[in-house]
Design a protein around this nucleic acid. Structure first.
Lengths: 260, 260
DNA sequence: AGTGCCTTGATTGATTTTGATTGAAACAGC
DNA sequence: GCTGTTTCAATCAAAATCAATCAAGGCACT
């Protein structure tokens, strides 16, 4: 565990709700309190956070004493990359095994689906994505063909979205889709924000097979904009932290459940 | 095992996740730590990576503190970026002045046109581009809208090219085009490679106004695939190294010549 | 073969990071 | 106010990492 890695996780923790107690940070990271305090001191020095007795909060939010809601809207999603990173990596690796060499797949944007990318080298896939992060991650893989839909770039979500009447051109259509999501509940798959929900809807509306990649924390939490119903999915890949109730809900909807 | 081979493996390792610890690198390569440290020092000197205690990460991504956009930093561009850099910067800056606030423009890929990007902040432009590098450069500019055509990503050139029958969707059409080129001669504007030539042809075929950005070295050299005739251009922006003969050729073709 | 140059690997000591300990400071309850 | 508990900061020793130096080996060229 290195300095930057720890600082990234700490920042993610703090940005998640605007505040993180020292105990939370200590529980999340495997390092001595002294080291964590030094990390906090560095981050404070850099102006990224403001320390208070017992924890730290986002710098520049002095006025907002009231609890801020966990909001993904407007927050560049890369900040969540380090959250539950271990699980996301496992899920991404497992999901990559679902790919068949040479086929065409759609990879949605999101921090979990992004973790598939390192494991796709050598499969000679044709990847269709609307995520600039995915494009960036796949560029070094010489054997992977990349196609993207045209449209406007939305910088908060770092996705490309065609908001006109046209949809993805048929020439870059791929039948199998790997989807990410912010929350999953009985109402279906959800995204934190309408733009993302619309983007994902574009991706799956003509799909023949849809896999959802989510870490188990996504099965509880606030809700958002509905992308699709659970029954529209074929597979869900998640980690072993999933509750029995959630697993049952998934099976009841007729969706295959894979624990990475 | 040669130097370049090792450096390539190290770079791949680092690009895989954006960071690689020294132990990982040491485990992956059969060379002494001293040699690997020398490799890292060279790569850092070249600006490809940034070393931190315990490892190294991609240059330009300042940890999780600021890395919010997908960065193409570290993605191989043409070696040309630093070639005639002074001139290219001047040309880019001058060409940016040709933009009118709020308008829609097309910016072609290439090392010269790329130099326009830093000067476009605040103009509230709508930029249409097929270059991933341009997208990357414009992402931090909050006021600049970015649109891209759909299609396949060509990694050598880092451009998006629609090779199907469809062309750029009308909704992201922009009438004024800033073009780059590899070579300019009496036969017209040329690119070193057919893919690039085809991409640029797509860009200008419906343009109402075309500016060509080239440093003066481009007026002599080998030729390539023709993109368009000189007479199809409206403006050429170049540096003061241009020869009298070339300047005359341009004026004879009825094209305005701007020396940056 | 001999020379000079470059790359590599090993050794050493310096620097950085880390975890534990201790005393000071802040907080909560009475 | 006062006291017990928690949190914080400073210090120190151990471990890890880094940089500098030097000798050995490879390669081109004479």
């Amino acid at each position: 565990m290195h300095v930057e890695e720890r600082e990234g996780i700490i920042l993610d923790l703090i940005r998640k709700t605007g505040f993180a107690s020292f105990r939370q940070i200590d529980a999340a990271l495997d390092a001595s309190p002294a080291t964590l305090r030094r990390d906090l001191a560095r981050l404070e020095q850099a102006g990224a956070i403001a320390r208070v007795h017992g924890g730290a909060r986002i710098a520049g939010s002095e006025g907002a004493k009231t609890a801020t809601y966990p909001s993904l809207a407007g927050v560049p999603f890369l900040e969540n990359v380090n959250l539950n990173r271990r699980q996301k990596e496992a899920i991404g690796k497992r999901a990559a095994q679902l790919c068949r060499p040479g086929e065409s797949v759609v990879i949605d944007g999101g921090t979990t689906t992004l973790q598939m990318c390192p494991h796709l080298a050598g499969l000679n896939l044709h990847v269709v994505t609307n995520s600039l992060h995915v494009v960036s991650a796949l560029l070094p893989q010489a054997g992977t063909r990349i196609s993207i839909p045209g449209g406007a770039v939305f910088r908060e979500q770092n996705i490309i979205l065609n908001i006109g009447p046209q949809d993805m051109t048929p020439s870059i259509y791929a039948p199998r889709v790997f989807l990410g999501a912010a929350f999953v509940g009985p109402q279906g798959v959800m995204q934190a924000d309408m733009v993302l929900a619309a983007a994902e809807h574009q991706l799956i509306e003509r799909a023949e097979w849809v896999a959802l990649l989510v870490d188990s924390s996504k099965f509880s939490g606030p809700s958002g904009s509905v992308v699709c119903a659970l029954s529209e999915l074929d597979v869900i890949v998640t980690d072993d932290g999933i509750s029995k109730a959630a697993a049952e809900m998934i099976r009841d909807a007729g969706v295959e459940l894979i624990i990475a």
